Computed example of a mutant assay.
Amino acid sequence: MEVRSRAPGKIILAGEHAVVHGSTAIAAAIDLYTHVLFRLPPPSENQVSVELELKDMGLVFSWPSQRLEEAFSTIDTLPPILQPCSEDRLELILSLVKEKSIPEDKLWLSSGICAFLYLYTSIHGYKPATVAITSELPLGSGLGSSASFCVALASAFLSLTTAVSVNGERSGWLTLSASNLDLVNKWAFEGEKILHGKPSGIDNTVSTLGSLIMFKSGELTQLQSTTPLRMLITNTKVTRNTKALVAGVAEKASRHPGVIHAIFTAIDFISKELATIIETPAIGDISIRAREKLIEELMEMNQGLLQIIKVSHDSIEKVLQTTAKYKLASKLTGAGGGGCVLTLLPTSISNTVVEKVVAELEALGFQCLKAEVGGNGVQVCFG
């Protein structure tokens, strides 16, 4: 029994920071994925361990099934239904992870391995298995890599149970039914809680459902894009402290409530207008370019407002200056203070120009990724 799954990363197109204060934001899936290969071996193979292979890092961790069964029997029986990871269970999982020799410079992987063990043992118990993971997403850059990881794991694990049924032809990449996607999303959210404590749930929802999602004050609306959007995503490789950036904006709001409220209101209008443009059909080359020009203007306005509240960064400004030379619109995505920058690639732009932009940005030490925006959510493939 074998299944592959892939779950996309995400970007924030508009509404960063303001969304924390009640404004509208728009998130979108991108065609950069976390891939999981999950295999339950037949009894004839005599495999006795649960094995996790992080292929990108050349790391393998394994736990004998008997060791897992003995460890978990000391606290309670396996949860028969979806439920949050209890403190006892998390403490036990942490002890199982600490038994492994994780390289000192990779200790940050511990929380992800904990999420893996929680999801696996909750869904499949202690059955021997092999789980191999690769990712096209840079880690810790604000592109939803952890949510993508949890969604890919949850979908793969559930696909080899009776909880998820796949009807029809089981060939190629398949999208699960709405009810199955809801179950995957709920499990992934529990994994995200192990990784982040109190996640918003936006990242795992976008990774599960795909497309574009407008969200405000906990309410989510899926948008239907009428024309593909292409983005150049520049990873500045500058790590940022999201909590500190959010706190800094909150402090400004307390000192200048009227001004910051006006900025957040403007950002709310930008997000809503962007949603309208995204869902409005564009017919013909002229219409498509006119639509792109509107999106570019909104991106630049959103970036300007984010600069006013001081969440940009020197590295982000370098990206903006570089792309502006080619008359391309860019904005930060996520918390700012480093992280990633989005640049809209118009349908009319030539590959030669794109490669020139990429070469300049990479010469500055940045990483460039090209992505389609608003595509498929999580998918599975059997055989």
Score class of each variant (00 low, 15 high):
103 P>Y: 12
84 P>R: 11
83 Q>P: 00
89 R>L: 12
105 D>Y: 00
100 K>C: 11
65 S>Q: 08
82 L>R: 15
97 V>L: 09
81 I>E: 14
67 R>A: 12
69 E>S: 13
77 T>N: 12
70 E>K: 08
75 I>P: 03
78 L>Y: 14
72 F>C: 06
87 E>T: 14
98 K>Q: 13
80 P>V: 11
96 L>S: 02
90 L>Y: 03
78 L>R: 15
86 S>C: 08
103 P>S: 04
67 R>C: 01
98 K>Y: 02
81 I>D: 12
86 S>T: 15
85 C>G: 07
94 L>I: 05
96 L>W: 03
99 E>P: 01
106 K>G: 00
82 L>G: 04
96 L>Q: 10
68 L>S: 02
89 R>Q: 13
106 K>M: 14
67 R>V: 13
69 E>L: 10
79 P>F: 05
65 S>K: 07
66 Q>P: 00
100 K>I: 02
104 E>F: 09
90 L>P: 00
86 S>R: 08
97 V>Q: 08
85 C>H: 03
95 S>G: 04
82 L>C: 13
82 L>T: 06
104 E>H: 09
87 E>D: 14
92 L>R: 03
85 C>L: 08
92 L>Q: 01
103 P>H: 10
68 L>T: 02
71 A>K: 05
68 L>W: 04
78 L>V: 06
105 D>M: 02
84 P>N: 11
96 L>K: 02
78 L>E: 08
98 K>H: 11
99 E>G: 15
69 E>K: 12
98 K>N: 12
99 E>Q: 14
65 S>M: 06
105 D>T: 10
73 S>V: 07
85 C>Q: 05
99 E>S: 09
88 D>F: 02
89 R>I: 09
100 K>F: 03
84 P>F: 11
91 E>Y: 06
103 P>E: 10
106 K>L: 15
88 D>G: 10
89 R>Y: 10
83 Q>H: 10
99 E>A: 07
69 E>Q: 14
97 V>G: 01
72 F>L: 12
75 I>W: 02
102 I>M: 05
103 P>V: 08
92 L>V: 00
70 E>N: 09
75 I>S: 07
66 Q>F: 03
72 F>S: 04
79 P>K: 06
71 A>E: 11
80 P>R: 14
71 A>D: 05
67 R>I: 07
98 K>T: 06
76 D>K: 11
74 T>H: 08
83 Q>A: 15
105 D>C: 02
96 L>E: 04
100 K>P: 01
66 Q>H: 07
85 C>W: 03
104 E>G: 00
81 I>R: 12
93 I>H: 02
69 E>W: 02
84 P>C: 10
97 V>T: 06
84 P>K: 11
71 A>R: 05
78 L>G: 02
86 S>L: 05
89 R>W: 12
67 R>T: 12
93 I>S: 01
75 I>L: 14
82 L>S: 10
104 E>Q: 13
65 S>I: 01
104 E>S: 14
76 D>V: 01
94 L>C: 09
106 K>W: 06
69 E>I: 02
89 R>M: 14
106 K>P: 01
92 L>Y: 04
98 K>S: 13
91 E>S: 15
79 P>E: 09
77 T>K: 13
76 D>L: 03
80 P>T: 13
66 Q>T: 10
69 E>V: 00
71 A>F: 03
78 L>C: 05
87 E>S: 13
99 E>H: 04
68 L>C: 04
